[in-house]
């Protein structure tokens, strides 16, 4: 018996990142644009999906992966719009990982779609840590959550390409300083685009759809 020490230096997420890479390759081979949509529970992910699908389903072939801890509620809402929807129930896990997406992809013929939206589990922390193989991450912050969230939960803001500030129709009734959020977020992530929207009234949805159209067309070339 002897005491030994071995230097390892391995990425703890290596297995998960390897699967994410193989998902990404699959998406690129099929020229499908894949979006990972994240936010706290109740910020409006499913409502945004409904608005997005209504605006885009006549011009694009869209599929959705719904991530929730339990229930088929969200998948039923999206299926009503006539869009292929796969529900993943994580059974307790607070985020989706690349492995869950890989399994879900067995049920989706990718060559039949232009645009795949992955609605992550409602959570402002954990989903940001896991690469699913997506092209872009987008997140929603609703005004009722408060304007201090980027400083409290910086990782998701740091990793997202787009921040959608939702429920702007409620701004008169809550304390939410949009400029404060924009300033904090711009110091956290210089690449992030901030869009102000209301899924209730439809305000700002056109700019979001325009961003998506550009992004989808980039994947086609």
């Amino acid at each position: 018996m002897s005491e030994i020490s071995v230097t390892v230096v391995r990425n703890i997420l290596e297995a998960q990142d390897r699967i994410a890479k193989s998902n990404r390759k699959l998406f690129e081979d099929h020229k499908v644009f894949v979006l990972n949509l994240m936010s706290s529970p109740g910020a409006g992910k499913t409502s945004l999906l409904e608005r997005t699908i209504e605006a885009m389903k006549s011009s694009y072939r869209i599929a959705v992966i719904e991530g929730d801890i339990q229930s088929q509620e969200d998948a039923l809402r999206i299926k009503r719009l006539g869009v292929e929807t796969i529900q993943i129930n994580t059974g307790g896990a607070c985020h989706l990982d690349a492995n869950m997406i890989q399994s879900a992809l067995e049920k989706i013929p990718l060559n039949a779609y232009d645009f795949l939206i992955i609605e992550n589990v409602g959570n402002l922390v954990c989903p940001a840590e896991f690469d699913l193989g997506e092209h872009e991450k987008a997140m929603i912050l609703s005004v009722t959550e408060g304007d201090d969230k980027p400083l409290k939960y910086p990782l998701m803001f740091q990793k997202s390409s787009v921040l959608l500030i939702n429920k702007i129709d409620l701004i008169p009734y809550v304390t939410f300083n949009t400029e404060r959020v924009k300033k904090t977020v711009s110091e956290l992530n210089p690449r992030i685009q901030v869009l102000e929207i209301s899924c209730k009234t439809g305000e700002g949805i056109d700019k979001w759809v325009e961003w998506l159209r550009n992004r989808i067309s980039l994947c086609k070339h």
Binding site: M1, S2, E3, I4, S5, V6, T7, V8, V9, R10, N11, I12, L13, Q158, S186, E187, L188, N189, P190, R191
Partner: peptide
């Protein structure tokens, strides 16, 4: 503003220590 992180995102196993038998 530059978000070019040199460090701060690590999740690494660096080393293990114990007995060889």
């Amino acid at each position: 503003v530059s978000d070019h992180c040199i460090s701060g995102k690590e999740l690494l196993l660096i080393s293990i220590e114990g007995e060889k038998g």
